[in-house]
Write a protein that binds this DNA or RNA. Structure first.
Lengths: 232, 232
DNA sequence: GACAGTCCTCGTACACCGTGCGAGTGGATT
DNA sequence: AATCCACTCGCACGGTGTACGAGGACTGTC
């Protein structure tokens, strides 16, 4: 099987962005609205066409395929991420702000979690973020391949932490207190003493706050671990 | 919208597992074979039915929905993960072996990356893994919520690192050396000096080896960061 | 004004999907 | 022999992404 690698970002757009009526940007904007409202499965070309008051297949003049459209929408998520100027900010601060705002952006667009593993992040917004991150780690003292390694470690943590968080919010949240859910949990926990202990000693905090705490805990740990590489 | 939370694991199986002909286990086994061979999009109920020499809808007697089938297949991936006995092994060793074997299991079943964010990991195999991990972190000296925090940090890192790795292998690998790909890369890198620098100074190693090195780099960092929580 | 060319729209159609339904089959129990 | 029950599966419904080609609308040239 000889697959072909293609991406929107490696190709020229079909037309000049300056169209009077529909344009690629408007399509992407509408797609994001649909995605935010109904999730990844809620976006279909027919629905999107209806929202734009056009035929479904008209969209294909601006966009080669649905996946391409998703690539474009995906990169918009990256535009919401703020990264402090690495030339004027300590690298830990850069990483921390990056981490929190990336988590925030993903939580704002839960569908991005499903795209994360599937699509390449080659869009201009994604590139800007990774460019700044790379620079921050280089100025911190990392060199050669370690710059990329450190960046991968940080983003891996953020992704890995936020993806399950989104899954939790979109599937379990709100049904948690149900007696049925409690029964199910008890059944699953049966025979697993460590889990039982965790459930019993769990503080009845707001789960959202707990998740934020968990994120900070791990983030500090990751940054500490990276820092050790610099001083060791 | 009042969604209902359901999972295979919170329900009794429809029939006794001891069927002479088709059984739930055989169906799951066949599904995994299809998934391994053709990926997540390659699994359809009709194809699966054909593989089992049965009608597509016959499967629905053993399994309520396709998502349930995926939950079952997903848990099988967790069965390939080995975790050393936390009562006889230092927690760093437990975490390290867990991390490497989880990465290996995911790479063996690339489709699991797509399921990771979407499905709850409540199956018995997943529970066994997390149970041992929890115990390891408790014995290491973590207490209360920190046990879960540490576990989340570790698994987040593993997931976040392995998911993009799989995406890379399944989409880009093999086309990397193409001149077209090089041109595309150059185009994307244009105007991003840090990325340019990274490309130029990149060692022409086997990319698989590089990824393994990146994984180890981050893993050591994460474990160092966690260890610091214990001694500080 | 007439014609040509280019940009853009979209109805139709195809192959595929998950799955609800209900009729049918075969073996065991009464 | 009659009944029940575990199990199979063809059909149909309402969706999906998108290839195709017929058209419309606008622009520029003679």
């Amino acid at each position: 099987m000889s697959r072909q690698f293609t991406s929107v970002w490696t190709r020229e757009p079909r037309s000049k962005p300056a169209g009077p009526g529909r344009s690629r940007e408007e399509i992407v904007k509408a797609a994001i609205e649909l995605l935010d409202a109904e999730g990844l499965t809620g976006l279909s070309m027919r629905k999107l066409g209806a929202k734009l008051m056009s035929g479904a297949t008209s969209i294909y003049w601006y966009v080669a395929t649905k996946d391409e459209l998703l690539e474009l929408a995906y990169d918009e998520v990256w535009s919401e991420i703020t990264v402090p100027d690495p030339d004027e900010t300590h690298w830990r601060e850069v990483a921390s702000v990056l981490a929190h705002s990336m988590r925030r952006a993903m939580l704002n667009h839960p569908w991005s979690a499903d795209l994360l593993g599937r699509l390449p992040a080659l869009g201009p917004n994604a590139m800007n973020v990774s460019e700044r991150m790379r620079r921050a780690f280089r100025l911190a003292g990392f060199a050669g391949a370690d710059i990329d390694f450190a960046g991968s470690t940080l983003t891996a943590y953020i992704f890995g932490m936020t993806i399950p968080e989104i899954a939790w919010e979109t599937t379990v949240e709100g049904v948690w207190d149900t007696t049925a859910a409690q029964a199910a949990l008890a059944k699953v926990a049966d025979g697993h003493p460590e889990l039982m202990r965790a459930i019993e000693t769990a503080a009845p905090e707001d789960p959202r706050v707990m998740r934020a705490m968990a994120f900070d805990f791990g983030l500090v740990s990751v940054l500490d671990g990276l820092e050790r590489r610099l001083t060791a």
